[in-house]
Design a protein around this nucleic acid. Structure first.
Lengths: 151, 151
DNA sequence: TTTTTAATTGTGTACCATTATCAATAAAGT
DNA sequence: ACTTTATTGATAATGGTACACAATTAAAAA
């Protein structure tokens, strides 16, 4: 959960025998410049790049998202149904969690520093190296409660 | 997060214009009799039923799992890669969370009552009706740290 | 700087969990 | 019992993600 630069990304990749490619650099920058609270699916990222005139194949996008999630650079979010979203994995003051309506998928972000503290403590206690820690609350939003819609 | 019986399940279903079927009753019982800490995928459940001589179609299993998750009877877990797992959604003393190794998928359960309290408080504050609340910690387990395996 | 090595990319294809379709069936209320 | 309509089961369809492999290219060695 540290802030990455191109240089530190390259260093960490090379340390493991991997390479910094223009594609990986571009994708890191996209996520770093994304407004707070925004998150992208693989498809989202593909089209965002497309709209900027750059093209990175979907395969590479999927591979890079997974790689960066497993390095702890990105958080993998399971928000709506069907596909994953990714956002930059930021340390304490920006660290947040999600309250999700299971019916309409309306999602609210909220902060709670003690959750990250608990996660850190639990991981440490078990000897795990922490990458990410997220509280997911599944619930029914006020509008959907009123709507009496079928589940 | 209350304990369901056949009767209360029927009541809650009928209240919404839905029906209690033998399939739904069977699936509820399976989960209620599952040893603590066990969770099943749709496929798992299908084969478990098969081994007991009962057969419920995969379609119905998928539909029922989703229905029960959205009613708050089951928790939908995103543990390993690729498919969801389900477990009974139990109140406080049994309520637990998951620490997952992103490399080998080794998963540790842990308890922490304050997390459920926080989730309840947050949902209430936003006017959401709480169904489930789970802390997911993504990390690298000790064995995988030593292994220096490729990500 | 050139060469060498092997990680990475892009294209196309395959996989597989989950959802949709729809006729047949069976709960629930009358 | 009868009617209504939610539910089931079989099958097909969907779609996100992973895989295979030849062509590139980053990184280290010469």
């Amino acid at each position: 959960m540290t802030a990455y630069t191109t240089t530190s990304l390259k260093a960490e990749l090379n340390e493991r025998g991997w390479r910094l490619t223009p594609q990986r650099e571009t994708i890191l920058q996209i996520f770093q410049n994304l407004p707070k609270g925004n998150h992208l699916s693989a498809e989202d990222l593909y089209h965002l790049l497309e709209s900027q005139g750059e093209t990175i194949s979907l395969s590479t996008i999927y591979r890079t998202l997974k790689l960066m999630a497993r390095m702890g650079i990105l958080r993998e979010l399971e928000l709506a149904e069907g596909h994953k979203h990714y956002e930059i994995n930021q340390p304490s003051p920006y660290h947040h969690h999600h309250l999700i309506c299971v019916r309409c998928n309306k999602t609210i972000e909220f902060k709670n520093d003690s959750i990250l503290r608990m996660g850190t403590k639990t991981a440490k206690k078990e000897g795990y190296h922490l990458l990410d820690c997220q509280l997911i609350i599944h619930a029914v939003c006020p509008a959907c409660q009123r709507a009496l819609l079928p589940i």
